[in-house]
Structure formats: C-alpha cells, structure tokens
C-alpha cells in the first residue's frame, strides 16, 4: 500500500444481518483527489462495504483507516466528523423536513459562520433546483431532486471523502448525466470520491480506478480504461 492512501481497508470481514457473511477480506485504498469506483452485482456486498466504512456496521475483522486513523468501531457520527460523508443507497433524505432543513442537518457538525453561508451558496450553485425548492418538504421532491438533495446535504459538511452509494439508481438517463457531471465537478473542487454503482459503464467512465466486488471479495482491480477492455468485466458487467 502506498503511503498516499486517504482511505484504506485491510482484510475487512463483515456480517450482514445475523449470518450472511457479506464481506470476506476486502482490501482497497482510495488516494486523495481520486475518483474510485466499486462495481459489482446486486448482493455482491457493495452497500455493506459502504456501511462498514461509514460506521453503520462494525467490521468483524480487519482494519479501516482514514488519514492514518483507525475508523473501525467508531459510531457513524464520529466517522462523519473526521471528514468522510456517505450519501446512502436510496438517498435517505429526511422526507418531513424542508429542503433547507435537510441542508441544515448536513451542516449539523459545523459551527455557524461566513464559511457555512458560502457552503449553502455553493450547494445552490451546484443544484439550482434546491434553491428554488428550499421551503418544500424533502418527501415531495422527485427522485432526481432527492438525489441532488442527498448529495447537497452531504456536501454541507465539507467532506474530504464523499462516498456515493448507487447515485444513479432509478433515475432517468438525463438526470443520471447531470449527477455524474456534478460528481466530476465536486472532484475537481478537491473532494475525493468513492463511488458504488451497478451501472458499471457509467462508473468506469467517471472513475480513474475501480475495484470489482463479487460475493464479498475483490476479484479485480485496476485503472478504469483497462477494466473496460477486460473481457471478463465486459462479459459480466458491461453486457458485451
């Protein structure tokens, strides 16, 4: 492992539910400034992996390290305060809070101030629709708007690493384009991104490097361009 890793997982095992062994010795790393994709089929363990990093699940074995500090065993609110935000699968916005209140919750860990005011402006620049709907209840937004709200809410914390779990799920292609445009832009602005996607082609185009997860194990890894040319990956995930 190189010394430049921002996030690294070393032999992580996790059990999901009571018995299902969802992760079997996963090791991976994300370096500062990268966009890294994690692809795999439904049930491969992608969401379990994200939940384990975010502190929603405790790893059974193995180490999760973020900027040199061990995360394993920390509760989600402490993991998050170290600069690692998860946009969970299914968006999980707060349906009975307004758009503005959802964003305020995103900034919950931060002190009020001029910096925070700039953060709201930044989010409204990235997602103008959120500005127009700021007084609306989160639950009344469309699926695409909810995904934008979930991303904007996570950005309010000014994370160093943004983890996105299936951001394109259930969205129209034109909305998916928009979401991936924003991901690229956020990354250019200096946020490291770890992206989980079932839509492997989209993910591999957005990311410089990727890992392939199958039944809880990393079966393949490398730069996206070579994975796109890999016959096994093409057959299993790109429908070629």
């Amino acid at each position: 492992m190189s010394g430049g890793a921002m996030l690294s997982l070393d032999g992580v095992h996790a059990v999901y539910g009571r018995k299902i062994r969802a992760l079997r010795g996963v090791s991976l790393e994300v370096r500062a400034g990268e966009v890294v994709a994690l692809i795999g089929n439904n049930g491969a363990g992608k969401t379990t992996l994200m939940k384990t990093i975010a502190g929603l699940l405790a790893p059974e074995k193995g180490r999760v390290t973020f900027q040199g500090r061990a995360l394993s065993g920390l509760p989600p609110h402490e993991v998050m305060r170290m600069g690692l935000s998860l946009v969970p699968e299914g968006r999980r916005i707060f349906p009975r809070l307004t758009v503005m209140e959802n964003l305020e919750m995103g900034a919950y860990s931060r002190a009020h101030g001029a910096e925070l005011a700039r953060e709201y402006e930044h989010v409204f620049t990235l997602f103008p629709v959120l500005g127009r709907r700021r007084a609306q209840l989160g639950g009344t937004l469309s699926g695409g708007e909810q995904q934008m709200l979930a991303m904007g809410r996570a950005l309010m914390a000014a994370p160093k690493l943004l983890m996105l779990d299936e951001p394109s799920m259930g969205l129209a292609p034109v909305v998916v384009d928009k979401i991936f445009e924003i991901i690229a832009r956020i990354n250019q602005e200096g946020v490291t991104v770890l992206l989980v996607e079932q839509n492997a082609r989209r993910a591999l185009k957005a990311a410089a490097r990727a890992y392939v997860l199958e039944t809880g194990e990393i079966v393949s890894a490398g730069d996206s361009a070579s994975l796109l040319r890999d016959p096994a990956v093409q057959k299993a995930y790109l429908g070629l």
Binding site: P88, R92, R96, E104, M105, G106, A154
Partner: peptide
C-alpha cells in the same frame, strides 16, 4: 431539528453527525 431528523431516519441522522 435533530429530533425531527431522527424521527424521519435515525440512521441517516447519524450520517449527518447527529
């Protein structure tokens, strides 16, 4: 607001640092 967020989604509130 944190109480309402927890009532909506306890796990997601944790992800916000609550």
């Amino acid at each position: 607001k944190a109480m309402r967020a927890c009532a909506d989604d306890l796990e997601a509130a944790g992800l916000m640092g609550v």
